[in-house]
Design a protein around this nucleic acid. Sequence first.
DNA 1: CCAATACTAAAGCGTTGGCTTTAGTATTGG
DNA 2: CCAATACTAAAGCCAACGCTTTAGTATTGG
Lengths: 101, 101
Amino acid sequence: MTGQVHRVFHALGDPTRQAMVERLSTGPMSVSGLAEPFAMSLAAVLQHLQILEESGLVRTEKLGRVRTCRIEPAGLALAEAWFRERRALWERRLDRLGKLL
Amino acid sequence: MTGQVHRVFHALGDPTRQAMVERLSTGPMSVSGLAEPFAMSLAAVLQHLQILEESGLVRTEKLGRVRTCRIEPAGLALAEAWFRERRALWERRLDRLGKLL
DNA sequence: CCAATACTAAAGCGTTGGCTTTAGTATTGG
DNA sequence: CCAATACTAAAGCCAACGCTTTAGTATTGG
């Protein structure tokens, strides 16, 4: 599952997809509901959605003719952990530097 | 400075740039030092570096003929904060849901 | 001084990304 | 039953990416 963090970052690197994740953070919704604020075709939204799913940030489930999209917290957690690690390394280095002085 | 988070994500969305940031997390280094483990031209590394700088993740400084690259902790912090916010929203929602049951 | 070092700038090239349009399929309210 | 709804699949288009090569400039150890 690790080593795929850059897929998460790549997914969030597009403003539309970032906004979609922000929107889904407030609760699940249908594809057309998710698409509503965006000035683009539904097909385009679906393509973004697919990238979000492949990155592990979003999970979707189809019931009847409606596909419901929701955040996958594990995906967010993976990326958040990466930042914590970088910061830990950085701070550890500053500590060593401090002790040298 | 905010609203630029997707630039940070975009910068980290490339495996080479992600690796560069990981490398710089352990300490500053020159451009050629940074480039050493990568199987690509120095020019390519410079191009990645420029994107990292524009995203605010990395700061560089030239002294003599050597440009030294170091992490900009504020850039990492910005992105980390974004994840914390999403998680906060998500958890707040689960709380409301829990109280309803 | 000058060759080696350490980058830098610019052009070009094939691939991927974000979008569209068109043409579907599956589901359901009335 | 059937028209409207909610997506889905595929093809095509243009811009942005990631890389290369070539040809520089600035700095410095000896």
